[in-house]
Simulated assay, not measured.
Amino acid sequence: MPRYEPPFDDELSPQVWASARQLPLTWSVSQAPTAPDPTDSARSPATPPVDTGAPLSAADAPPVVAGASSDAKLAVRRFVHLCVEVLNGYRPAGHLRRLSLPSDAADVVSEGLAGARRVTDFRNASRMGNRRARRPVPVAVLKLRLCEPRPGAVEAAVALVIGDRTWAMALRMELHQQSWSATVLRLI
């Protein structure tokens, strides 16, 4: 047989990728994935576990994966955009309250206010050295990294730039009553 021909199906050796803890692939939308049956430890790894219909326990929860869901990404981008507008002086810091959890809103607003003051101080100091600069240098987002450590909670690290300085902003948002709310905001 010529070397450029692919092998026939009966010539291929089976590749086993399944592990003992692999969840079954269910095609129906109404069923949630279930945990493997611990009594079937003698089963071969290539055989999929039996779907028992039992919900996953906390010990069988999926591992934390870098990144976040699309809803979480949208909520974080919206919140970061609002924070940048507060830092640039286009909005008052009180506008952060409506996107914050009520119990944490005072801390989030005070951190936004402190950040806006720091930006103003930086602009005033840089304006003293350069009298020709008329338009203030805006705060801009350099990079945004997200992680969803558990469903319903997202954490973000944001690199901000103003002039020749780089700042960091960290935040956490949680899903409460079908809306994302900020619980922590830190400017470094």
Rank of each mutant, 00 (worst) to 15 (best):
Met1Gly: 05
Pro7Glu: 04
Pro7Met: 06
Pro7Thr: 03
Asp10Arg: 01
Glu11Leu: 06
Leu12Asn: 02
Leu12Ile: 02
Pro14Asn: 02
Pro14Cys: 05
Pro14Glu: 09
Val16Phe: 11
Ala20Thr: 05
Ala20Asp: 00
Gln22Leu: 03
Gln22Ile: 02
Leu23Met: 04
Pro24Asn: 04
Ser30Pro: 01
Ala35Tyr: 02
Ser41Pro: 04
Ser41Ala: 09
Ser41Thr: 05
Ala42Ile: 01
Pro45Ser: 03
Thr47Pro: 01
Pro48Gly: 07
Pro49Asn: 00
Asp51Met: 02
Asp51Glu: 05
Asp51Asn: 09
Asp51Ile: 05
Thr52His: 03
Ala54Met: 07
Pro55Met: 08
Ala58Gln: 12
Ala59Tyr: 03
Ala59Val: 11
Asp60Trp: 05
Pro63Gly: 12
Pro63Ile: 13
Val64Cys: 13
Lys73Glu: 15
Lys73Asn: 13
Val76Thr: 11
Val84Gly: 01
Val84Asp: 00
Glu85Thr: 00
Asn88Arg: 10
Gly89Thr: 04
Tyr90Lys: 09
Arg97Lys: 12
Leu101Lys: 11
Pro102Glu: 06
Asp104His: 14
Asp104Met: 14
Val108His: 04
Val109Arg: 08
Ser110Lys: 10
Ser110Phe: 06
Leu113Glu: 12
Ala116Ile: 03
Arg117His: 06
Arg123Phe: 02
Arg123Tyr: 08
Asn124Glu: 14
Asn124Met: 11
Met128Asp: 08
Gly129Met: 10
Arg131Asn: 03
Ala133Ile: 13
Arg135His: 01
Arg135Lys: 11
Pro138Phe: 09
Pro138Arg: 00
Leu142Ile: 13
Lys143Tyr: 04
Leu144Trp: 00
Leu144Asp: 01
Arg145Ala: 15
Cys147Ser: 15
Pro149Gly: 10
Arg150Ser: 15
Arg150Leu: 14
Pro151Lys: 07
Pro151His: 12
Gly152Val: 07
Glu155Met: 10
Glu155Pro: 00
Ala157Asp: 13
Leu160Arg: 13
Val161Leu: 11
Asp164Lys: 03
Arg165Val: 15
Arg165Ser: 12
Thr166Glu: 11
Thr166Ile: 13
Met169Phe: 08
Met169Gly: 06
Met169Gln: 12
Met169Thr: 10
Ala170Ile: 02
Glu174Trp: 01
His176Ala: 12
Gln177Cys: 09
Gln178Phe: 12
Ser179Asp: 12
Trp180Ser: 12
Trp180Cys: 13
Thr183Arg: 15
Thr183Met: 12
Leu187Gly: 04
Leu187Gln: 06
Leu187Pro: 06
